[in-house]
Design a protein around this nucleic acid. Sequence first.
DNA 1: CAGTGAAGCGGAGGAAGCCTCCGCTTGATT
DNA 2: AATCAAGCGGAGGCTTCCTCCGCTTCACTG
Lengths: 183, 183
Amino acid sequence: MRADAQRNRERLIEVAHVVFKERGLDAPLDEVARRAGVGPGTLYRHFPTREALHEAIMATWIEEVSAHVEKAMATEGGCREKLLAWFEEYVSLLTRHQGAAAKITASLGCQDSPLRTKCQTYADANESVLTEMAEHGALREGVDNLDVCRLLGGVATMADHSSLEPKDVRPMLDVIANGVLKN
Amino acid sequence: MRADAQRNRERLIEVAHVVFKERGLDAPLDEVARRAGVGPGTLYRHFPTREALHEAIMATWIEEVSAHVEKAMATEGGCREKLLAWFEEYVSLLTRHQGAAAKITASLGCQDSPLRTKCQTYADANESVLTEMAEHGALREGVDNLDVCRLLGGVATMADHSSLEPKDVRPMLDVIANGVLKN
DNA sequence: CAGTGAAGCGGAGGAAGCCTCCGCTTGATT
DNA sequence: AATCAAGCGGAGGCTTCCTCCGCTTCACTG
């Protein structure tokens, strides 16, 4: 890739971060181009679809996921406390940008989404936590990772749409934790 | 209201039902107007916002909610079976039209949404079911109706976005039921 | 029934966003 | 310095939203 093209690409990602942060993942792409100082054609050549740009944005988040797992698993207390800490991390990761939770979770089931690899990272992270719970004999029988991811995605989406604060999200996570763990 | 205005209004609702069914609640309003044989101005005078039209559409659904509660409560088996039957009804009511689940559930917390009265009907229905569970001593302490509604709204939204079938939704409802009921 | 005023209608059209196409510019290479 | 493909930008067609305003039609009155 030519050096100027590389520069433009990086600048677009940088600006997209800001614009998506300000206005959500549905922000007008023409504005991203304008604020990056390039024409719309340039944006669409680098990122043919909105999702391609989303994917580029999320690449940086992905690297942090495992750190969040470890942070949650270091919570003091039993499985329940650790699980809830992780659930809170999960929701907060998904709601970084307005509109992200729904999009990421929707791509969970479909093989051909550009966000596939990203959401898989979240799903894998959740699976590792659930596996740890299972090893401690704390997990109910028949709890499926995909279902838990979708439940958490649903909670995150509701939190996003209703601008809920963590204190409003917590009770929902409590219910899910109760449903996932043995009592 | 003048007779012709009344006719137009009814026709718009009728056509909107069809268009929203075909293309989801985000379908172009101009198309609703066109297919109803009126100008866009007429549509926007009767329904100043998209939500106003949604509200009109949903008015007919609302009447059926209590019938669905009774149907679910007539399920044979214990509290768990009844509750799950109701949860399935709830999700299927919310996913009648593409995009409805998210919109209805988002208006749960906010007092000034035009959909307020509609979502309140769902919330009330759910509360009546939870109350019945509580009277049988089957409900966990501290389970809040609003949280359960949001959880179900989240599941319905995920089902909507990922085009999930009932068999894929059921396991999520199982988790919520486990989280809501005593074991 | 004719006349009148207001309620209501329709559609032109401005604004915003999406995305493409194509002539021009510029970086890399020789 | 010359070449030319890679890359750029922005004009512009398309869709959808929503408003504005001149014209039509209804309902009512004498």
